[in-house]
Nucleic acid binder design. Sequence first.
DNA 1: TCCGTCCGTGACACTAAGTGCCAACTTCGC
DNA 2: GCGAAGTTGGCACTTAGTGTCACGGACGGA
Lengths: 194, 194
Amino acid sequence: MSLRDHAREAIRDEVAKHAWTLFAAHGYEATTVDQIADAAGMSRRTFFRYFAGKDELVLERLVESGNLIATALGQRPADEAAWPALRAAFSVTLALQEQHHEKSRPLQLMLRAEPALRATAETRRRLWVERLAPLTAARLPSTGAGDRPDTRAVAVAASAVACLEAAQIAWAENPGTSLGELLDDAMGAVAPLA
Amino acid sequence: MSLRDHAREAIRDEVAKHAWTLFAAHGYEATTVDQIADAAGMSRRTFFRYFAGKDELVLERLVESGNLIATALGQRPADEAAWPALRAAFSVTLALQEQHHEKSRPLQLMLRAEPALRATAETRRRLWVERLAPLTAARLPSTGAGDRPDTRAVAVAASAVACLEAAQIAWAENPGTSLGELLDDAMGAVAPLA
DNA sequence: TCCGTCCGTGACACTAAGTGCCAACTTCGC
DNA sequence: GCGAAGTTGGCACTTAGTGTCACGGACGGA
């Protein structure tokens, strides 16, 4: 990573910090790019050189978790079945999320409450499923011909992500609950976690 | 329904017809509201009195399917388990979709390919899960205390919808495949359809 | 028949996201 | 010190979406 890349990262972090302060104070949609740029001490135009759009500030955090989950899934024993492996892989995020609940709870709630973030929520889902599906495929019982293997892996990965989301929103809305228990409940209701 | 409501419906249909012609020709994002309004012979401002936004033209169709599925689920035998009941309820849409494949295939592809429709895809998912979760709850094995019954139902309904989506996109991308078989594959990989 | 009212409509102005373009400035190697 | 390359900010533009106002037709009552 070059010197300029470091500087760029530092600036991105700085801008994001100001943005999240504003989001927390006034909400996502009510915060304009002008306000963020002003707070960060740069012009509107320059903001768009660091972030493709306002939503990238939010997506940034979500992509990170996706990568964590994907690497965790890759490190599960090879003979473990898809559903329990996904459940186990989710644990890394769960721990981090409960640890930083004062940050992740508002994020989850914002992601549900702000209509302007729906596209971002969908983007996150797609990215996660895209990352997890290939790793899930190998853990599925093989069918004879295997003519269309992708669909099954995508379905399983997407279902697991859907369960995670259900657990996350329940956790965010009900302080004091255990994210791990909620996820066990959610995934266990769909298929046995064996 | 009053006289004015009928007229309103007729105009909405007329506008939608023109809009879909333009979408098919140039894509969703590339089609501006001005063009739609012009084609429909009304002012831009009046378009927004009939549709909350450009995306409502797309959402309209998707909500319809959701209602069909929900009523179908309500009519399944009461003692049927959640997963097979959801699979069976999806059949109504499947049949309609394969019947009008020349319309529904481009819709599915557009929904995946156009970034501007990601928020719409997310909205559809939420609406569907919201409708299906309450009907799913009663078909779940009861837990002793039942302290948080919603989460499980939401997880199961959301997983089923995720499977449906996986099947739909595979079907849209691979002409000649059977939507029913793809859905059986997808849902069967997550949990036994018993 | 005339008058007031309600409703749909169009025109205008405005905000906000996002993009293209250009000129000024900084930084770095030579 | 000089030139090249990268960074920045300003300006203009497009598009979605909203608020406001004034015009015009349909309808009912006096």
